[in-house]
Amino acid sequence: MNTTPILEVRNLRKHYPKVKAVDGVDFSVPTGICFGLLGPNGAGKTTTIEMMEGIIRPSSGEILYKGEPMGPRFKNEVGIQFQSTALQDFLTVRENLKFFSNLYPKNRSMDELIEICALESYLDRDARKLSGGQRQRMLLAIALVNDPEIVFLDEPTTGLDPQARLNFWELINRIKAQNKTVLLTTHYMEEAYNLCDQIAIMDHGKIIAQGSPDQLLSEHFQDVIIELPAQDFPQAAEVIPHRRLAKVNPSIEISTQDVNKTVAELLQAGASLAGLQVRQRTLEDLFLELTGKELRQ
């Protein structure tokens, strides 16, 4: 396997007059992996990925593609799916694919694209009349027309229903299986955990954590979470450090490194363990831990 990372970002910055959207970011994306860029809304994910795509000019910093500054071949070898993409009106899915194919010197066969992205059933439909999931699949196919070495996907599953999201994950796994590099932004932790070999979490224009999901979880957490319904949590148990979650069915979360000890304490306080659950820490916990819980726009 090639050891030069396919993409490398060094001290990347994008400063707008009133905001430092990206404020000194370093990371590298090894060939053939799925790299996830995570962060809350407004963290600078899209600005970062669009600089890496060559769409936005960085204020400073370096972006290396296969160890060299981005040259003319870059656009021929990458595939891009923006967060929102408009296409021309009155064109069918097939015509859009054909159009984008013609813009590249190298093409993937149309039949393959149709099969990978499951476009067969609506190939001749006007692209404006697709459902959210169908549209995302078409846009992914467009990002793949040139058989790219790296695919940028900016929040590809935002706004999709759970079924369509699962379908889309399957597509991304199929692309990964063909040894393509995928660079993905998302704010769904479950998505990142399922798809990404490596992740970087961004907030306020900076990277605040980086590594494989499991590695990050074990670095930040040595505990597990015990959750039980609030009505099962007696007054006597209040001494145990806990967090009350306001949900339709309010619940209590206890973080612990020793489940047996905590459960014994709960029993001693007279708590019912009928609704008790023990779960591992998730990326969601990490994300909330690292980026805080204040509201974002």
Binding site: E53, T85, L87, Q88, F100
Partner: peptide, 16 residues
Amino acid sequence: RYRKNGYLKRLNATPL
């Protein structure tokens, strides 16, 4: 219109 709805941006991501 192409510029405003982002179609030009998409084209800019191609070799065109």
